[in-house]
Design a protein around this nucleic acid. Structure first.
Lengths: 214, 214
DNA sequence: ATCGCAATACCGGGAAACGGGTAGTCGGGA
DNA sequence: TCCCGACTACCCGTTTCCCGGTATTGCGAT
């Protein structure tokens, strides 16, 4: 007997494309799709699928809230989250809401049917990109906002910020009332710690870390 | 004879799904796909397709910049933009870059093959959601919050991209098969034109313009 | 009490960046 | 036709970066 699934994504084109992708698998039957949370709730009530694949980024009732409501009404339903983002907060919220799996869209197309089969058998499936976050949390190392936190000291962050804003070492020294030598030591320590080379990479790192804006 | 197309999207799963969607059409042949701008440029050189369907939101070289470079190298190529967003700026920038069509992902799955066929015949295809913006602009109601776009030549953009990725002038020269002197001239011209000083500012500019990712 | 580490500061040298020139080629528009 | 802009290339000199050291101070943890 084939696995009955429904799809939910706010982009109809993606919905059609995913459907086409899954129709090639003959043990998986797509019994419906929905473009927003409300339609998804109604669809699940009507078709009673085994699995719902839901994009977290839907307008109106989003994927996380939809999952909560879905599982409140039908605890036996299995939900797979599908998302463009690997952000730890999304992943954890979705898993807390009761999802059995989390797939990032950046993963290969074959992962979707594989995840569906794994979860149909009662197991869990996480994309490698996000597995770490969930494991960390399960261990109790719950430090949500942080990937690799404060490797840098406060002074180093300050120097890095000014550097990324286009200041030279001597300008930074003047602004911080310290010697140029010290600024350069800081800069070199930053580069060594983070394994970065050159101002361009330092600048991009600073932007990623929110120390300055592009 | 069937229409040869390539697909570009940073999400591999979407790539696989779109491919599957298009494989059902027997007058359309997907001859390759790419997950970032650089891979796309290489792919097009290698496969010489009729049409490239490119997602604007790719990391590294984004869809808009990739389109510019694609068309600079192969003016006969037809580019269809595919995006989750209907934002006027994106649409107009993409059309200015030379795209022949703009599809939003929220539109129906059947729109993609239809757009491909329309554009293969030399016409233009715009999703209804964004057609208005383009028409307004064509009428001369040009009120894009449009800063100043194409101040840089193609070679300068290329140098800037490599520079922002952390390459030194000599590395850039080697990669582009030109002399270090020339690279430095380009760099100085860029700085003069944009009134920027130093690698940090150049890097941030490149990121704002989508020439590279943070 | 001692250890570790962040922060401070300096020396020296090779490699880039930066800013100012000059100059040739080539294609397209006035 | 002729000139402009883009791309190519080189010269020079100064500044800054980048990497290797060494060293002192002071705080907080062991």
């Amino acid at each position: 007997m084939s696995i009955r699934i429904v799809l939910a994504d706010d982009h109809k084109m993606i919905l059609a494309a995913l459907r086409s992708l899954l129709e090639k698998e003959n043990d998986i039957a797509v019994v419906g799709d929905a473009a927003d949370g409300t339609a998804l709730l109604e669809l699940v009530e009507r078709t009673a699928p085994d699995i719902a694949v839901v994009d977290i980024g839907m307008p109106g009732i989003n994927g996380i809230e939809a999952t909560r409501r879905l599982l409140a009404a039908r605890p036996l339903l299995k939900v797979i989250a599908l998302s463009a983002y690997t952000d730890k907060r999304f992943v954890l919220e979705m898993m807390e809401a009761g999802a059995r799996g989390y797939l990032v869209k950046a993963s290969a197309g074959e992962e979707l049917p594989r995840a569906i089969r794994t979860i149909a058998q009662g197991q869990t499936y996480l994309s490698p990109e996000v597995a770490g976050a969930v494991v960390d949390e399960a261990r109790g190392h719950g430090s949500i906002a942080g990937h690799a936190p404060a490797k840098l000291g406060p002074r180093e962050r300050q120097v890095l910020t000014l550097l990324a804003d286009g200041n030279s070492s001597s300008e930074i020294g003047a602004q911080l009332h310290i010697s140029v030598s010290t600024v350069e030591v800081h800069r070199r320590n930053i580069m060594r710690k983070l394994n970065l080379h050159g101002i361009a990479e330092l600048t991009k790192y600073a932007i990623r870390e929110g120390l300055t804006s592009p």
